[in-house]
């Protein structure tokens, strides 16, 4: 198993590229930044420097609220490989207040209590390389 973050879950380092470096740099400083399309206003996820809705290649990064609600969740109890010892843990989609639904984990609570519609708040789980993973905890 890779190193564990403050959440108690593995923190595998992400693989930033030219399009996502800004996103990851912000997480290292405890901020959630997202790209918004300059043409149609769509907030794009996963982060990229183009709008999948209108095709614009002009986006402006802004700091998001970090608030959201659970769109779907599952308690993973059996999983092979490096996550085996982390089970049971909550895998979820959280719908950010700004619109995007993001894959994440719900941490800092009893996994059995997490439910669809629950209000959650981002926590930044640092990886050994500096960037932090977006995880969420009950608001």
């Amino acid at each position: 198993m890779s190193d564990l973050g403050p959440s108690g879950l593995p923190v595998p380092p992400p693989n930033p590229n030219l399009e996502t470096q800004r996103f990851w740099d912000a997480t290292a400083e405890g901020r959630l930044e997202l790209p918004r399309c300059d043409s149609c206003g769509h907030v794009v996820w996963y982060p990229r420097e183009r709008c999948d809705q209108c095709g614009s290649t002009s986006v402006t990064w802004f700091e998001a609220s970090g608030r959201g609600t659970v769109y779907s969740c599952t308690v993973t109890r059996r999983i092979p490989g490096s996550w085996r010892a982390a089970a049971p843990f909550v895998l979820a989609y959280v719908e950010l207040d700004e619109g995007p639904r993001v894959v994440t984990n719900i941490v800092g609570c009893d996994p059995e209590t997490v439910h669809i519609g629950q209000a959650v708040q981002v926590v930044f789980d640092p990886t050994p390389d500096g960037p932090a993973l977006l995880r969420f905890t009950p608001a």
Partner: peptide
């Protein structure tokens, strides 16, 4: 893959992913 770091870091197994669809 461009999406890799935004999905693969969270313990998304095949069964876990399909469980998200089933739960919803």
């Amino acid at each position: 893959a461009p999406e890799a770091s935004f999905e693969n870091q969270f313990g998304m197994s095949v069964s876990g992913g399909y469980a998200l669809a089933a739960a919803r």
